[in-house]
Amino acid sequence: MTSDAIPERKVYAPATVIRDTIQIFPEATAARLGLGRAGSSLPTQAVLDFNLDHARARDVVHTPLDFAALERRWDRAICWVRPSRTAATA
């Protein structure tokens, strides 16, 4: 990489990503709108954001349920039902 590579990238990047110009109510939905495009593809920032969100969802899916913590929190709440360990969770 040459020393002038970085300023060059700064100059070119904003013009490369095509912004979405349809006017929408951003507060109306959490859908991934207004991400723009690089050519016909998703811009880098949107790819990285999606990747992070998927990574978090994957980590959560693979985290075992902490029954002890759940029961402690349940005890603090006034609740009619306590979590029970069934055969499926044993």
Partner: peptide, 16 residues
């Protein structure tokens, strides 16, 4: 799709 069928949310996604 929208989690509460909000018509503004549905339309925002549709128009884009």
């Amino acid at each position: 799709n929208h989690p509460t069928d909000d018509p503004r949310g549905i339309l925002a996604s549709t128009l884009e």
